[in-house]
Design a protein around this nucleic acid. Structure first.
Length: 767
DNA sequence: GAGTTTGAAACT
DNA sequence: CAGTTTCAAACTC
């Protein structure tokens, strides 16, 4: 786009208009230096700016400074701000993206009534004076390269503070005080805190957990929700949170991180071994990523923020959060982990006043800012949160209702600073000091850790590895894919930026051995899809430990037990002994003894495989369908059978991934879905968990699937509690094989044999 | 804070 | 793949 191009007098027929239309709506990786700063000024008489923003092609985040001043609330009401959602009506906002900006689309429908001027400007500081009490700023990265952006201008004076401010998406309540520096600083802090809260919200979202729900479905829900919001034109603040969850600055950081971990920028193309991303890979995530990358989210309309909403932007009603939780979380899916690396530039925009501002008593959702160096514990809705395991990224901390801390100002609870290593690595010196660091940054690790523990902020824990050099999964930091920080008490640590290569290679090696090594340890099941043997009424958050524990002496009553530590009940994937997990014992454990006895008796009864399969199938189906427990109808299944059934059950409990699937098909192990055996590999299982889009990853990983803990939730156990491939269970260990009774539910579609034809079913379809 | 216990991870 | 070793967190005193 030309510099200094005037839009005044433009009309859709003009050649310029055509030219602009030919411009790529998606800015490419143009270097910042090449960025042309563009300012968009709207005259005070703007009345139909909305049309300008209707195009989703505005790539505001890249490379240009887009200063937008809107004067009409009507625009916002129309919800047509793809990127200017941050812009408060009548308030100036500027977008200072880090990359080139293509504004081609903005003019596509340029409203002639709008008199505005696009100016290429080198003056980043050029901001339309605020005339309204509120303003929102969408800043961008001000990393070193960014500084160069303003080569022609005076803006090289980017100060730390400016950086802080500009690099963050800011919702500022201060209004007219905005220009006061003192206030600004405060705002910056608040914003940062808000961002943290936002990240926590994101991290807290179910996406952190491996959901048994089709992500796509969930995402769709989010979309629906958005549309609903658009429908009533009362967008919730959560929209803001979602849409702005990743400040532009984060983009760069994310890119850096991805470089570090060799992650493709396209989330959909990410390796399946990329834990959080994998499980969170969903449309929502992609949307978020796309948004980050400059492509407007699917629903740009939902991103506008009316004044009245903005007024309370920083005070996100918890109920709103709760309602939108799913959608938001899905959208933020995959971003929460990024936040670990982006702490420094945490978007201060979203400040969630937990507690105090939650006027709605019905709201039980609380968000507590838990600053964990570079790792934030998910927080929020008790419905979805579960205690986390150590530092793992994919766990969340439940916040008890009576936990005062949950309502405290995060700032007061920030005892764990941002991982300085990351700060250094990502921005080398960039000065933006995490506002949440506070004085704690000077605390010694132990003190800090203890403090965090008392604060119930497990996430504050840092590793204290001595021999592993923080390059093994023993190291919580490493396991969490974060660098160790100075707050770790580790020795000989190589898990830092300076040993990036080593970290990366080690990580790859570990993942090659176990692709789920870095995977979330807890998966969340939606609805009735709980595993067999899991006490549904005791397992919190409908979650269960993905891999399952193997406790022997702790009886799953101590934190040695990952399940217990995660706050979830033991599941069939566990191999624990004497399970007494207070969150839900493994039913199999209870029945194990009796099952063994019974099994001996049952083995005496030879039954045709098909009958046995019928039993098994119906058993699973009935369970899945909510049919009164078939436990009474069948002999108690063996442990193995439970597990194998769990596979089916798990399948059935999930929303259909494909519209072509019928309910019966969904549960039916027919076709390739099941022919490969229920999760013949963990990858398959993941694919079931993950959005359909992730299935693309399957081929690549199918081969890697050692026993892997990944199969955890569907893991099949041998009587000796040794892990057994699910494939085997179908044939020889089928519980139904031992169950002598046959019950054929004619009304229920018959399942293809799980065992009898195991050979054929498990074999790749031969055509 | 030191020592012990525990179970996961890593190794053979 | 099973058994062993190593490791660090959790736990106890």
């Amino acid at each position: 786009m030309g510099i200094g191009m005037s839009w005044r007098g433009w009309n859709g027929d003009s050649p310029v208009f055509d030219f602009i239309n030919t411009l790529s709506p998606i800015a490419t990786s143009k270097h910042l230096d090449d960025v042309q700063n563009i300012q968009l000024f709207e005259s005070s008489d703007l009345t139909h700016v909305s049309s300008i923003f209707t195009s989703p092609q505005v790539n505001s985040q890249k490379g240009s400074i887009l200063s937008i001043r809107n004067a009409s609330a009507k625009l916002s009401q129309e919800g047509l701000y793809p990127y200017c959602h941050m812009a408060q009506i009548g308030t100036p906002s500027y977008i200072k993206p880090s990359g080139p900006t293509t504004i081609s689309s903005t003019n596509s429908s340029t409203d002639h009534s709008v008199s505005k001027t696009y100016q290429a400007t080198s003056d980043n500081a050029s901001i339309v004076p605020s005339i309204l009490p509120q303003h929102i700023q969408l800043g961008s990265d001000t990393s070193g390269s960014d500084k160069k952006q303003d080569t022609a201008g005076k803006t090289d004076h980017t100060t730390d503070q400016e950086h802080t401010e500009s690099s963050s998406i800011c919702f500022d309540h201060s209004g007219v005080d905005r220009r006061e520096e003192s206030t600004s600083r405060i705002n910056v802090q608040e914003r940062n805190m808000a961002k943290i809260s936002n990240d926590e919200l994101a991290a807290h979202n179910p996406g952190n957990l491996i959901s048994h729900c089709d992500s796509g479905v969930v995402t769709k829900t989010g979309l629906i929700f958005e549309k609903a919001q658009l429908g009533d034109r009362t967008p919730k603040n959560s929209d803001v949170m979602r849409s702005n969850s990743m400040p532009i600055n984060d983009i760069n950081l994310e890119n850096s991180r991805r470089k570090l971990f060799h992650e493709p920028t396209d989330c959909n193309a990410q390796s399946i071994v990329d834990d959080g991303h994998i499980y969170c890979t969903s449309r929502g995530k992609r949307i978020a990523t796309n948004y980050v990358s400059g492509v407007p989210p699917f629903s740009s309309q939902s991103q506008f923020i009316p004044n009245h909403q903005l007024c309370g932007t920083l005070e996100v009603p918890s109920d709103c959060m709760a309602i939108y939780h799913n959608a938001v979380s899905q959208h933020l899916c995959g971003l929460h982990r990024r936040s670990l690396f982006n702490e420094k530039v945490r978007d201060p925009t979203m400040r969630v006043h937990s507690g105090s501002n939650l006027g709605n008593p019905s709201c039980t959702t609380r968000h507590r800012s838990i600053s964990d160096d570079n790792y934030l514990k998910p927080l929020g809705s008790p419905v979805c949160t579960i205690p986390g395991i150590g530092l793992h990224l994919n766990v969340s901390v439940p916040i008890s209702e009576d936990n005062n801390e949950a309502t405290e100002d995060p700032l007061n609870k920030m005892t764990c600073p941002v991982n300085p290593t990351l700060l250094i690595s990502d921005h080398n010196d960039k000065t933006t000091t995490p506002t949440n660091v506070g004085d704690s940054g000077q605390e010694n690790p132990k003190r800090k850790r203890r403090k965090c523990q008392h604060g119930d902020v497990k996430s504050c824990k840092r590793c204290s590895c001595k021999k592993s050099k923080c390059l093994k999964l023993y190291c919580e930091c490493f396991a969490a894919k974060v660098y160790c920080s100075e707050f770790c008490s580790c020795g000989g640590c190589l898990n830092n930026k300076s040993h990036e290569e080593t970290v990366l290679s080690t990580r790859i090696r570990i993942e090659s051995r176990n692709p789920l090594a870095f995977a979330p340890k807890v998966i969340r099941t939606c609805g009735p899809g709980q595993e067999f043997g899991e006490d549904s009424n005791t397992t919190t958050a409908s979650s269960h430990h993905k891999r399952g524990c193997n406790c022997k002496k702790s009886c799953c009553l101590k934190k040695y037990c990952e399940c217990f530590q995660s706050g979830v009940g033991c599941s069939m994937s566990c191999r624990c002994e004497s399970c007494k997990n207070s969150f839900g014992i493994r039913k199999g454990a209870q029945l194990l003894a009796s099952e063994e006895i019974e099994r001996v008796d049952q083995t005496k009864e030879a039954r045709p495989k098909e009958e046995q399969h019928e039993v098994g199938k119906h058993r699973a189906f009935g369970k899945t369908r909510g049919v009164p427990s078939t436990e009474n109808l069948f002999t108690t299944p063996s442990n193995e059978s439970r597990r194998s059934l769990a596979l089916v059950t798990s399948e059935c409990s999930k929303p259909s991934l494909s519209p072509t699937r019928t309910s019966s098909q969904l549960c039916s192990p027919t076709g390739t879905d099941v022919a490969l055996s229920p999760f013949g590999s963990y990858t398959e299982m993941l694919l079931e968990d993950a959005p359909s889009g992730m299935q693309q990853q399957s081929g690549k990983n199918d081969a890697q699937q050692p026993d892997s803990s990944c199969t955890a939730s569907v893991k099949v156990m041998s009587p000796s509690k040794k892990r057994v491939s699910p494939l085997h269970t179908g044939s020889s260990l089928s519980p139904m094989g031992r169950s002598g009774r046959k019950l054929v539910l004619k009304s229920i579609p018959s399942f293809p044999s799980l065992t009898g034809d195991i050979n054929s079913e498990l074999q790749p379809p031969v055509t």
